[in-house]
Design a protein around this nucleic acid. Structure first.
Lengths: 332, 332
DNA sequence: CTGTTAGCGCTTTCAT
DNA sequence: ATGAAAGCGCTAACAG
């Protein structure tokens, strides 16, 4: 593969000059410029990103960590961020943390070793302190879906408490008083928040809280199925699920056991996955604006790290809203 | 951030020695080793991947191009490949080509500039010739979901013709003779192949081919919805969709228009997306073993490029198989 | 077993 | 406006 040296020789100029025309930085006289471009063309030269990063101390790479690469929930985060970053010639590299503190640290380490200029982290397992440490290093850090104390201006998060509350209120307004909840795994901040919103709404409406109407799942369909099974004998007329996938599982359980949704039991999800509209009945759920959050995160980095688009509006705290479809009975 | 020089000074040895203990390559005496490790620890040193790649001529990075980062179809490709590669300390970086020849070239260029040791390409828009050119360069290339003449040993593909045929046969065996087809966009090789399998099966069974029972979609739900609309007046008892997403759209159309699936019309998908089991009725479809293909692709690279696991079994040509659920009426 | 010495391909002063 | 030269942080012969 051709190097800058080859190009400079072929064009009869110095390497510095080649570098200058390629980066459009300094003023180069028209004719020299053409000679260089011709040589680049002839040799099929592609600048070596690695070498460029080494010499300049800027890699142009932004690293992202998500829990899983293959997940309907996080995919949009990668998709949207990549699109925007690419538009400004920044490259996104992604690593997955698999919700495990050790793996998350490894992933972040990897990203750091790649000398990313900035990091977008969707960290679920690692501690706040660890994140604070990272943020002190000389990389710009943006944390998605989690509000870390002391890192307010680096976080783009969703108000999950308000979401849980809003969803529950919707169910209450629809006339439900016997409401069950299949929560996400309690070690995850978002799962805890959603549940606490649920509890708050109950309290606000002075509806008796009943521990056996709450069951903990792990965000998978399977656990939603199990959760629904255990709730089905508890006399609930509505079930709030910690996420859409568990809601899919709950619906599947109902179908398998001749429980009609929403006539016999209403089911509500959380996330508004793309597919939520295709279940039967179509799932009523809370919208998680992850694509917008991705864009805010990317803008934040573009601003702070590369000084691009400093006027782009950035929202740091998002409010979920209800997407009403057919899985909730409103005449209960 | 600490460099190898800092470490070598702190440990009182040469940089070369530090490099040796870090790479476990050469023999280093125990005591030296400990000194170095202590210094590494004390300084919080992380080797610079970029510099390492430059000096060694090997980046340890494998590049992947997929049509979209956020897609239920391609996600597993990234997820599985990353998991396996990471297990062997290789990093995956992903770029998206958006099904556009220009963007695909840019993505591949980017990957090449990053000096990836190998490329996993899911290229839909770029020509065979272009792929042949790339393969001639000094990167290992694996092409997924496309069989390129002259690159047989670098391709991991799915027999889409056989898949289209098998699916159609299944419909025919179920008693259907008036079969419609919503195909994918014809500029995509897989869409063409699936359609030609459909046509072959019809021919094999001497069922009259009727052009107005075939409509071209673009793999989106929306286009499936539209396709079903146009087919609904053509007297078909079954519809084969070019992919699951269009099948979802077709089902949605039927639901909106009181057409019962599968009593009035049977619908069959292609891909077996994770979500296909959650539609109502649950979608009968062809399984696209993309996770296994991802693993084969990754193994191929591990073998050829890094000489790891040379005995791992690798399949280059996959056969889709039927996943029977509830959307096809078998007593037609 | 360990140190010395060249680079890897590029950017960036500093001269001219 | 352009060239010369010094690194960026690391690995890889080659000595010893």
């Amino acid at each position: 593969m051709a190097t800058i040296k080859d190009v400079s020789e072929k064009a009869g100029v110095s390497q510095a000059t080649v570098s200058r025309v390629l980066n459009g930085s300094d003023k180069v006289v028209e004719s020299t410029c053409e000679k260089v471009m011709a040589a680049v063309e002839a040799l099929g030269y592609r600048p070596n990103t690695l070498a460029r990063a080494m010499a300049s101390g800027r890699s142009g790479i932004v690293g992202m960590m998500v829990p899983e690469l293959a997940s309907p929930v996080y995919s949009p985060l990668m998709g949207e961020a990549e699109a925007l970053l690419r538009k400004h010639s920044k490259q996104l590299i992604v690593a997955s943390g698999h919700c495990d503190p050790k793996l998350e640290r490894e992933a972040i380490d990897f990203l750091l070793q790649c000398r990313c200029d900035a990091l977008i982290l969707m960290a679920e397992a690692v501690s706040d302190e660890y994140l604070l440490d990272i943020a002190k290093a000389n990389v710009e850090v943006v944390i998605v879906n989690r509000a870390v104390d002391g890192l307010e201006s680096n976080c783009v998060s969703l108000d999950n408490i308000a979401g849980g509350k809003l969803a529950t209120q919707f169910l209450i307004d629809a006339g439900h008083t016997h409401i069950g909840c299949i929560t996400g795994p309690q070690f995850k901040p978002d799962a805890r928040d959603r549940q606490s919103g649920f509890l708050q709404a109950l309290r606000d409406h002075e509806i008796a809280y009943s521990a056996d109407r709450i069951t903990e799942g792990n965000y998978t369909e399977q656990s939603g199925y199990e959760g629904m099974k255990s709730l089905s004998s508890k006399g609930v007329s509505a079930v709030l699920c910690g996420n859409d996938e568990m809601a899919f599982g709950a619906i599947a359980y109902c179908r398998d056991h001749q429980i009609k949704v929403p006539e016999d039991v209403s089911i509500m999800g959380f996330d508004n996955l793309h597919f939520a509209r295709y279940t039967y009945p179509a799932l009523t759920t809370m919208h998680f604006p992850i694509d917008e959050m991705a864009i805010s995160a990317a803008h934040l980095i573009l601003n702070r790290c590369y000084n691009i688009d400093p006027t782009a509006p950035i929202t740091r705290r998002y409010q979920p809203n209800i997407v009403e479809r057919q899985s909730v009975n409103k005449s209960a």
